[in-house]
């Protein structure tokens, strides 16, 4: 019973078609992204599914999962607000921005807001050094950049997302 395959037959076929037929292993990372799409982390029971699809061991899949920072092994917020605080951004005030934002949200860096929606993280350079402060939003299977931020701007983004979540909850 390959749940992942059952849920995303077309996506998986498309992913596999991107690599030579005898190199299914290359599909591991795209498949991990796919497995993470729904819940924001890779549920451990999908590892066996990916192992089956790619023909490599679950242990090897796990080693890939553990190496890369965009994959999450544990549940976190629905959205990750990942703020670059690396050197160039820090020179442009991103550390203070992170601190204030965390205060406003009532969390510490690395923590998730009480409503379970947002995990705020400091991350390394995102290739947006000239538009600091900035963050990337990882969630709902997407990654989006928000640049030239101020705490107010970011809070507005957060509010909009909260609203969206509320709407979804209301619509069941």
């Amino acid at each position: 019973m390959n749940k992942l395959l059952k849920k995303y037959p077309n996506e998986i076929e498309k992913i596999l078609s991107r690599y030579p037929a005898d190199q299914t292993r290359s599909a591991v990372m795209p498949l991990l992204f796919l497995a993470q799409r729904e819940e924001g982390f890779v549920p451990s029971d999908t590892l066996a599914d990916i192992a089956e699809i790619t023909g490599i061991s679950e242990t090897d899949i796990t080693s890939v999962l553990g190496f890369y920072t965009l994959f999450h092994e544990q549940p976190g917020g629905r959205y990750y607000i990942q703020i670059c605080t690396d050197l160039p951004c820090a020179l442009r005030g991103s550390e203070e921005y992170l601190e204030t934002l965390c205060q406003k949200l009532g969390v510490k860096e690395g923590e998730t807001t009480a409503d379970g929606l947002f995990t705020v993280e400091a991350v390394k350079c995102l290739a947006a050094c000239h538009r600091a402060p900035m963050f990337q939003l990882q969630g709902d299977g997407e990654i989006k950049y928000y640049e030239d931020q101020s705490v107010e701007k970011t809070l507005a983004v957060i509010e909009a997302l909260r609203e969206k979540a509320k709407q979804e909850a209301a619509n069941g």
């Binding site: 490599i56 061991s57 242990t59 090897d60 796990t62 080693s63 553990g66 190496f67």
Partner: peptide, 8 residues
Amino acid sequence: PVIHFFHR
């Protein structure tokens, strides 16, 4: 392939 490294 039943043991491997995890993390980095």
